[in-house]
Design a protein around this nucleic acid. Structure first.
Length: 285
DNA sequence: TCCTCTCCTTGCTT
DNA sequence: AAAGCAAGGAGAG
């Protein structure tokens, strides 16, 4: 290590980098020789655990200037002890918390998060990553760090100009139409994604549901992973199975299941969802 | 209004 | 190797 080049972001903070970055919340993180390599807000980041805490490199913005933004992205402002205490309602969730302790809910860029989860429809984590990487390589800006290159995630304007046909060529499948239309809507300013952070859950969700290709589940993902709504509770195949097998939930009405989850797990139900999802998916049942 | 069924792209898995 | 499956949504009935 070149001394002084990296920054110890945290020391003694409960952060599980692997579970946080590779649990299906964000889709552009790659691990190489214990370093996680990803792109956050037009910046290339290399980050890893060390004995002293979390260390990282960033470019083009310097480590010192990017530290606060990175802390925010990683959700380090969340009080995990308080959240664990709030959602630990039973053995299932408690064991998941124990197993993956330090997994945090990310605070991603809403635009990138929205497109990622539109691409997640009837897809797989590998394929979502592939789509996000393809979009970046074709329409993003090249950035480098320590002799390695990646590409920024493209703006709504650029994706709108690309058009549906081009996106289909890049193998987005039936999602190409949704990505294209949403890019148009956002670039024309018909919805302000950042503004949704300041609205209550119900109002923000209603606006997201108006977008083509966005239903209950994808809207909840965007609300939870990028719009500061810890009470969003995305219900996908894995979570549905977990709720059926571990909680004997039989009803398939999305809104009613979410109401149950909010009642049962409380205001941080979204965190409970992430632990149930991660546990269930890695368990491969 | 609300539920259920089918279709939609592609690629990895079994 | 054909079929199943993957962080779903839209439209029809």
């Amino acid at each position: 290590m070149d001394e002084g080049k990296y920054l110890i972001l945290t020391s003694g903070v409960n952060l599980n980098l692997e579970s946080t970055l590779l649990s299906g919340q964000a889709h552009r993180w790659k691990i190489k020789d214990y370093w996680y390599e990803g792109v956050i807000a037009q910046n290339l980041i290399h980050i890893r655990d060390s004995d002293l805490g979390i260390e990282f490199y960033s470019a083009p913005v310097s480590e010192g200037e990017f530290a606060d933004r990175l802390s925010d992205y990683l959700g380090l402002g969340d009080n995990l002890d308080l959240i664990y205490q709030s959602i630990s309602k039973d053995v299932q969730i408690s064991s998941a918390i124990k197993k993956y302790t330090g997994m945090r809910i990310l605070r991603q860029d809403p635009w990138e998060c929205l497109i990622a989860f539109i691409c997640s429809a009837n897809s797989s984590l590998i394929r979502i990553s592939s789509a996000m990487e393809t979009l970046s390589e074709n329409f993003g800006q090249r950035i480098t760090l320590k002799n390695k290159a990646r590409y920024t995630f493209p703006s709504a304007h650029v994706l709108a100009e690309a058009g549906e046909a081009r996106l289909r060529q890049l193998k987005l499948g039936f999602r190409a139409k949704y990505v294209s239309k949403v890019a148009e809507i956002v670039s024309e300013g018909k919805i302000d994604l950042m503004e949704l952070k300041h609205l209550p859950y119900d109002e923000a969700k209603e606006k997201l549901l108006n977008l083509p290709g966005v239903g209950d589940k994808i809207a909840d993902c965007v609300l939870l992973f990028s719009l500061d709504k810890p009470n969003a509770f995305p219900i996908d195949r894995w979570v549905k199975r977990a709720l059926e097998d571990w909680y004997s939930i039989k009803l398939f009405n999305y809104s009613k299941i979410r109401e149950w989850a909010l009642e049962y797990f409380g205001e941080f139900a979204g965190y409970a969802q992430q632990y149930l999802f991660h546990q269930r998916r890695l368990q491969q049942l």
